[in-house]
Each structure stands twice: as C-alpha cells, then as structure tokens.
C-alpha cells in the first residue's frame, strides 16, 4: 500500500502544479445539497513568483488554497509539488508523506490562528525549526527576531496566544510559517486584520520570501498589498461558470 515516488515531472522552475482540479461539497445532512466550487482547474507556480487568487466572495479562493495544502480533498485532479528531489501528488499521497511535505516544503498561513492549546507563543514559533533539527538556541534566536519584527511584545512570548487580540494572533500565525524559508507558501488573507504598520511588515516579509525564490500563492483583499507582492493573477470567477 506504500505509494512509490511519483514519476510525474515538473518543468524546471515550476514548484507546484494543479491539473484538472475539481472541488465540490455534498452536504449530506442538509438534504444532500451539492456545491460545485470549481472543476477542470489548471494552475502552475514557479520559483520567485507570487500568484494572486482573485474573484468575489464565495468564488472558491480559500477552497482552492486549502486543496493545494491537502486540507480539503479535491474530487478530481492532481496537485504536484516539488519536494526535495522528488515530485509528490498531494491528491494521492499517504498522510505521512503529506505531513513530510508540509514540514519542509509547503507552508500555509490560514485566515485564523488554529494552534495547539496551552503552548507558549515562542514555543509555537520555535517548534517548526527544532522539529527539523535546528539547534534550539538558534531556533529561539530566529523566532525572537521575527516576533520582534512583527511587533509582538516580548512580555507576550511566554503566553499561549489564545487570549491575544485578533491582529496579534494573526501575526503569531505569520511568524509560525515565516520562521522557516519554505520553498512554497500558501497565504490566505494574511494581512486582513492588521494595522497599516504591520501590514507593511508582512508585505515586506512576503516580498523577501519571493525574492529569495519562494513560489507563493496568495489571497489578499487589500489592493495595495496585491500590487506590492503579486507578480501574476488568477481569476476564479471564470472557473465557476465552466
């Protein structure tokens, strides 16, 4: 039952590719209503690119991003990811393989912070690094630098983020992902609940990630942020009609 390494290839520079992707929901306990969100969707992101997902509310932007993270289960298609020297199809990979890809290759910032309860903020940011074998002292140093840059007061670092403000929680969320240099980043409105200053900081972080070669797919409500970080755009409105 172990899956063999996916033999499909990605062209040079391409980090992630969705092919024939379809997502629908059947609400079995609400009369079996079926929602078709998208189908036959093809999309590709390369190194150093930031692809903006566009479309009105309900168009399926978040559903697509979650499908690219294997948090949602697409009904058809594949999501190929360049992972180390292999290509993994997240739609057919075993759970432990998906988790391996998420640990080192694929970062995701969700709209809302969902973390392990009771764990202090600093540990939440340190953990992704120590899990990968980074020296604990160095990991703490990097985590602290990033939290400071995101203006999380040091007095809060020892506390779990459950009681933090919306904006603080969102910045912790961002720190947990940006503390390591993921080759691929998926961002669902990471700047939504931030004030101007923090929005600028996050915009800078995203742009720095892209410049070092990250492939990014993002959803941003703010036109200014879109203009600052995006290199290309993909509209989901047209997909809906298909």
């Amino acid at each position: 039952m172990t899956t063999s390494p996916d033999t499909r290839v990605l062209e040079a520079g391409v980090m992630m590719k969705a092919e024939g992707l379809a997502k629908s929901f059947v609400l079995h306990n609400q009369g079996g209503v079926r929602l078709d969100v998208f189908s036959g969707l093809d999309l590709e992101v390369g190194r150093g690119e930031c692809l903006i997902l566009a479309g009105p509310s309900g168009a399926g932007k978040s559903s697509l991003l979650r499908s690219l993270y294997a948090n949602y289960k697409p009904q058809a298609g594949s999501v190929l990811v360049r992972h180390d020297n292999t290509v993994v199809d997240l739609c057919s990979a075993e759970p432990y393989e998906i988790l391996e890809v998420r640990r080192r290759t694929l970062g995701y910032v969700s709209q809302f912070l969902r973390v392990i309860p009771r764990v202090p903020t600093i540990d939440l940011v340190v953990e992704p690094l120590t899990v990968r074998g980074v020296d604990p002292a160095e990991a703490r140093e990097r985590a602290g630098t990033l939290l400071a840059r995101l203006r999380i007061p040091e007095a809060l670092w020892g506390l779990p983020p459950a009681t933090f403000s919306g904006g603080e929680q969102q910045r912790v969320n961002i720190a947990m992902t940006f503390v390591q240099d993921y080759p691929i980043l998926l961002l669902d409105e990471p700047t939504a609940s931030l004030d101007l200053e923090n929005r600028r900081t996050v915009t800078d972080l995203i742009d720095e990630a892209r410049r070092r070669g990250a492939a990014i797919v993002g959803i941003f409500h703010d036109a200014e942020v879109r203009a600052a970080v995006g290199t290309r755009s993909y509209d989901l409105t047209e997909r809906k009609a298909a």
């Binding site: 079995h28 306990n29 979650r66 294997a70 289960k73 759970p95």
Partner: peptide, 23 residues
C-alpha cells in the same frame, strides 16, 4: 480515513459530517 485535518475539515461521509458538525 485520511489525514486528520482533511477528514475533520472536509468530511466526505454523511456520518463523519454529522460527527464533525457535532449535531
């Protein structure tokens, strides 16, 4: 069966949907 967050966030089977919606 599947990846934990996928099964909980996008349950496919009617029973799992019921379980997750905590009806």
């Amino acid at each position: 069966q599947g990846l934990t967050d996928q099964v909980l966030d996008d349950p496919q089977h009617p029973y799992t949907q019921l379980l997750v919606s905590s009806i």
